[in-house]
Amino acid sequence: MHNRSFFRIFMQTGAWLILAFLLLPMLVVIPVSLTDKSYISLPQDGLSMQHYTNYFTSAEWLWATGTSLFIGVGVALCATVLGTAFAIGCWFLSDRMSTIARWILITPILVPPVVQSLGFYRFWVQLGLIDTYTGVILAHTLLALPYVSISVFAALANLDRRIPQAARSLGASVWTTVISVVVPAAKPGMMAGAIFAFIVSFDEIVGVLFITVRNVQTLPKMIWQGIQDNIDPTIAAVATVLTVITLVLMAVGALRKS
């Protein structure tokens, strides 16, 4: 009996320690963002909002935030439309060829970011897409497509194949069946896919470092340059804002589910 409880206690305590290791480092940005010093440190003589003021009054930081939001929404739209159509087509066919197509569509998950970025750079130069919004949205859409197609396909796993067949035999065309029978069933997957796509784009950095110069400044690029040049607590303020928004959205999502 003693041995049993030791094993359980070990696993459970271990798990909470590991979760603390996952969570706590992400929270250190919060006190650092409130420091009264102009360098990375804990608050010493009191709390200060100066680094938040810095962020919210800096045209550069705000513009970069807007750019990332804009590109992220564009990517979510493009990737969700393309990826949903793709997954629905594959679901109807469900044969060897469509499985190969699905493997092709998920290659961006497996290819190292630097390798694909070199590819983007050379091809985007040829197409004149370097340092353009179109270029970034296109690149990010490619990176987001695997996630959309996987989550839509997963949602369709619950759809009984006889339902679209019934619609067809009652005289509905392929398009009507897709729009009024399959798409509604795919909706949860589409929603999840769109959110994934937005986040993939919003967080993407390696590709942006290769295919943009000065014209397109995204938020991750500003953070990256900030870390490289001089680490100032403004980055901690930005990180805190993003973390808090994420936590709030997760809490809202969890509440709506329950």
Binding site: L82, G83, A85, F86, I88, G89, C90, F92, L93, S98, A101, I104, L105, T107, P108, V111, V115, Q116, G119, F120, R122, F123, L138, A139, T141, L142, L145, S149, V174, V178
Partner: peptide, 20 residues
């Protein structure tokens, strides 16, 4: 069905696989 698959597949092959 292939018409549904094709846009995403073509974009992936032209702008991702080809650059690789």
């Amino acid at each position: 069905y292939w018409l549904l698959i094709l846009p995403a597949l073509a974009v992936m092959i032209i702008f991702y696989i080809w650059p690789l």
